[in-house]
């Protein structure tokens, strides 16, 4: 049933969207609010926002996971961190948008910008990153750590040279899931990164992502065909991300089980 719905949605969007797609659609900037032209600047905006968000969140997430698994035992600190991460995971994205708007856009005066948007996104993907990294690190057999110590390594060497490389496929899976989430995110991004159609020039430029573009095109009824074109690209991108995740998981399984 779910599969049927999934296929129906994909089929429907692709059927409406694919005819619009062309090389030109991908490589020209939108004109007349998106009525004409392509979606080039929104593709760039999406990539910039996603990459920056992951660059901010991944070190934090992986760092927290290492701390939680390797450097402490269960105590109130770890419980607070876990509880915090779970709460973050449960917050609706529109609330993140509002929070990001108040904190980054107005208080810290970053304005509507890629920076504000990606900081907000970073908060949203952090729980996933922590959880997947933690699971991946915990799955590394204890005996690898023992071997490493028995060869005279320090704790830090053991973590960086044995534990992290062994956990890397799992960690990368988490990162890719976060990328998928970032690409699809709309509500929080409108509030924080704005919806400028110009090509962004720095992380302080406002920029529109594909999801936001689709939302605005559809809601304002600017151009349904361009909206479907954007949606088709979005779906293809997310599909690709998921396929890559699947492939990595598959290889990981073959290697370790």
């Amino acid at each position: 049933m779910t599969i049927a719905v999934l296929f129906f949605i994909i089929f429907f969007i692709l059927k409406k969207g694919l005819p619009v797609l062309s090389f030109k659609f991908l490589t020209t900037n939108p004109g007349e609010m998106g009525k004409t032209g392509g979606i080039f600047s929104t593709i760039i905006g999406t990539i910039a926002l996603t990459v920056t968000a992951v660059l901010i969140a991944a070190p934090l997430g992986i760092g927290s996971a290492i701390y939680l698994t390797e450097y402490t035992r269960e105590n109130w600190v770890t419980r607070v961190i876990r509880f915090g991460a779970e709460c973050l995971a449960g917050i609706p994205s529109i609330i993140f948008g509002l929070f990001g708007f108040i904190l980054f856009v107005t208080k810290l005066k970053f304005g509507w910008s890629i920076l504000s948007g990606s900081l907000t996104l970073a908060f949203m993907i952090l729980p996933t990153l922590i959880r997947t990294s933690e699971e991946a690190i915990r799955a590394v057999p204890y005996v690898y750590r023992e071997v490493s110590y028995s060869l005279g390594s320090t704790k830090w060497q053991t973590v960086t040279k044995v534990v992290l490389p062994s956990a890397m496929p799992g960690i990368v899976t988490g990162i890719i899931l976060s990328v998928g989430r970032s690409i699809g995110e709309t509500a929080s991004v409108i509030f924080t990164a704005g919806s400028a159609l110009r090509l962004p020039t720095s992380i302080f430029s406002s920029s529109r992502t594909m999801s936001v573009h689709f939302y605005i095109l559809a809601r304002e009824g600017i151009s349904m065909s361009n909206a479907y074109g954007t949606a088709a690209i979005l779906i293809l991108a997310i599909l690709a991300v998921n396929l890559v995740t699947y492939a990595i998981m598959h290889r990981f399984m073959r290697k370790y089980c």
Partner: peptide, 8 residues
């Protein structure tokens, strides 16, 4: 160790 345990 008891079981062979090369790193992966």
């Amino acid at each position: 160790f008891q079981r062979p345990n090369p790193f992966p």
